[in-house]
Amino acid sequence: MTTLDFRNVTKRYRVRGSGDMLALDDVSFTLTSGQTIALVGQSGSGKSTIAKILTQLERATSGEVLLDGEPIPHRGPGLRRYRQRVRMVFQDPFASLNPYHTIRHHLERPLRLDKVVPADEVEDEVRALLTRVRLDPDATIDRRPHELSGGQRQRVAIARALASRPELLIADEPVSMLDVSIRLGVLNLLADLQRESNLGVLYITHDLATARHFSDEIMVLHHGVVVERGPADDVILRAQHEYTRALRGASPDPDKHFADPSGRAVTRS
């Protein structure tokens, strides 16, 4: 059981000429293995700052991040070990894969660098990773990113994140760049992997509908403050905070739009 504690974290950015910008104001939450938390909020709310602090691309101004009770090392082998355990999946699969390298190369690198398996088992492990993300190893392993569709590329990016056998996954808008008909496929894959490996997932998104169906809990971030949190259905269906209700009201919801006066949605045949 892995526990990541984000404890009373505040982050200020220096802005030239206009004083400090408070990006996160005393944010706390705990992510454990097997759990999916969605982090929602509009642009500028601080979602990505949380992801950056979790991956140590930024340091918190105050507060601490603890993995199983230990503070995250800021450098050296300790930081490296931390990053093997807590992995990130980025938004843009067109930018996060190197166009010069084959899919094999992308997946071999973390396996070799982190010495996940002995050298003579690397090839088998690469194939196993591709199979895990439901890609055909023979059809993908020697290709380069541009030869794959957006959904396939994001699957490769997920496979790469899984290579070091992480316990927690930070997924920053993992499907927002993909075509709508393949988004659910990728989210379903993440959900399956999460169950198979008992991963903890932080799902960062502005899409309330997928947040509700994909995660156990939702945290709503507004101007760097968590204004509401709770079980997914409660936060969306019985929102307490005004801002959560505003977000929900602004999101397209055809079921409500077409609901008849009796309050019952028009049934889809």
């Binding site: 008909s181 379903n188 959900a191 399956d192 994909f214 269906l237 929900r248």
Partner: peptide, 22 residues
Amino acid sequence: PSLTGERGDFIRGSESTPTTTE
């Protein structure tokens, strides 16, 4: 997935099937 309706529940819970488009 539906924001307030039930449709979309299949993400949480049931096993996924590979998407036909891919």
